[in-house]
Design a protein around this nucleic acid. Structure first.
Lengths: 133, 133
DNA sequence: ATAGGTGCAAATGTTTTGCTGTCAA
DNA sequence: TTGACAGCAAAACATTTGCACCTAT
């Protein structure tokens, strides 16, 4: 697998962390995980490699309202549910409507290359806790 | 129209700017516009009022990859096209699939309150300029 | 050998906040 | 009158960058 001009251990560790988790982590979470394997890795390196892996199409950057970006080790388009209370991001197992892009392109004269669909609300856990608030 | 506990001129000017434009501006753009009407308004006030208006459901905050949030004076759900080159954000005149929320909720056990759909690509202007790049 | 990558720290850019004074109700 | 809001500036926060050293090729 080609990972840019040099394959460094930092790059490999970051990609591996991202591919093994399903929690759509922030850069800082990835940094904390990576330090357990490479104690001297720096946050700057994490950001540099996340940007690199993104431009290579190996990962995706997601971002919702507040603050940090989140990263997704699955490079293929898929949809997400975001819990507005606990901020959890979950993959949805829905068919991706690929020809939507083409349709929009035709109707509006744009060249559409991708789309993003996200649902917001309360996850099962947070629904139960909600009345207490 | 109720705008929180006090209706200040700053609040009114910000809401008015947002409702009269269709360019989905950043906080700073709104600040620059507002200064032409209220020269002493501060950027902090702009942010405070944008957050207030958002929590009152009068406006929406949108955010894509890089840097600043953008604001939308239309509080009703609608879909957007984002040009990846010139960063322009355009409203799409598509029917909003409201029962999507309910369906997802049923299938996954979440309480879905809203969804967001965005298309990315090149707008008509940028498509023409593209070959030169 | 050497260019691309790393660690560190400083810089950048956006948004929030503390404080004091002001004004809408 | 009074508490919510304004202006100002500093702080907070996420992310990027400059630089000197290191290392994969």
């Amino acid at each position: 697998m080609k990972l840019g001009s040099r394959t460094t251990k930092q790059k490999l560790v970051i990609l591996d962390i991202l591919q093994k988790t399903n929690c759509h982590p922030t850069a800082d979470w990835i940094y904390q995980e990576a330090r357990q394997i490479l104690p001297d890795i720096s946050l700057g390196t994490v950001y540099r490699n996340l940007n690199l892996l993104k431009s290579l199409g190996k990962i995706q950057e997601l971002n919702y309202g507040s603050g940090q970006s989140r990263y997704d080790g699955n490079p293929n388009n898929h949809y997400h549910f975001v819990c507005e209370k606990c901020k959890k991001v979950v993959d949805l197992d829905l068919p991706v409507v690929a020809d939507l892009d083409e349709q929009i392109g035709k109707n509006y004269g744009y060249k559409v290359s991708s789309h993003r669909l996200e649902f917001y609300g309360l996850c099962d856990t947070c629904q139960k806790e909600e009345p207490t608030t």
